[in-house]
Design a protein around this nucleic acid. Structure first.
Lengths: 157, 157
DNA sequence: ACTCCTTACTTGAAGAATCAACTACTCAGC
DNA sequence: GCTGAGTAGTTGATTCTTCAAGTAAGGAGT
């Protein structure tokens, strides 16, 4: 067993920041969403991804991809959203295995009243804290990390 | 109600990346930990933070801070870790309300066999994907975001 | 020394996420 | 037109997290 390639101090520091970010950021956002809209971030994300799609409709599997979620998780959540009347499911006409999820008018309305507060919270938390140049840097530096995670996700060892 | 300060395209792009990262990164790490050590990332993080402390011991509240967790969550997890024999609790001598958590020899040994594989996974996922210059940029740009989250956490509106 | 507030932590119940089946459909090859 | 492999989605059980109490000790003021 070869000597592991340990992290440098700077790498370790960054790693702890990334871990901290993935621990704290969702909580921080969800506090606002929960308080103002009785919704969690994932549910919001699902509604948002539907609202941007043609006909406010996506296949479940497509929606799972765009929300970075498993089909199982999505299925449970869409069941909840359906109960609230914000989403409806329907059979896909061209593929008998597939299911469409569609944002209802009520769901769209919910999103419209929720979005401003959510965006404001995001802005205060993230974008008021960094410079436009840093936005560019982060976009550039985070992309390869996401690609790398995605590669491993698609081709697990 | 004033017009909300919507996000620019670049900001939106970054926000989606940050959300994606906090969704996918923990899973990616945990897959390896789960497979190789039957442990999740939070448990690993708890053991790691203990291993670095003097006497491998920390107060629960201190440990909660260093793992970005609530005391409640930590308490449940330490109970599990205690059952596995990796951590022990003891009363704090100077403050009757406080509890020490100490990493046992077994816990330290567990960490020692787990660390190389974990570090390797982190390296492959993160540091093989970006340049040393990007490590610096990310460290610099993520810091104010974490500070901002932390401020809101301490002084909720 | 007694009230009252805060801190430190634990606990049990409730809600959400994951995991491991399972159903149902599609499609490629024979 | 079967068979088998893969795809799409659902479901129920288990596990984890969060939430809302609760206990118990410290500490400030009186």
């Amino acid at each position: 067993m070869a000597e592991p390639r340990w992290l440098t101090d700077e790498e370790r520091e960054l790693w702890l920041k990334l871990v901290g970010l993935s621990m704290l950021m969702p909580n921080a956002v969800e506090a606002q969403l929960k308080r103002d809209a009785d919704m969690n971030q994932f549910e919001y994300h699902v509604l948002a991804m539907l609202s941007e799609a043609p006909n406010r409709t996506r296949l479940m599997s497509d929606l799972a991809f765009h929300t970075n979620s498993s089909l199982s998780r999505l299925s449970h959540v869409v069941s909840r959203l359906e109960k609230q009347g914000w989403v409806v499911r329907s059979a896909c006409e061209t593929d008998g295995r597939a299911t469409n999820a569609t944002l209802t008018d009520a769901g769209f309305a919910k999103l419209e009243v929720t979005a401003p507060g959510h965006v404001e919270a995001v802005r205060e938390m993230i974008f008021d804290a960094i410079t436009p140049a840093q936005v560019k840097q982060l976009n550039a530096a985070l992309q390869p990390i996401l690609d790398s995670i995605d590669t491993e996700r698609r081709a697990p060892k």
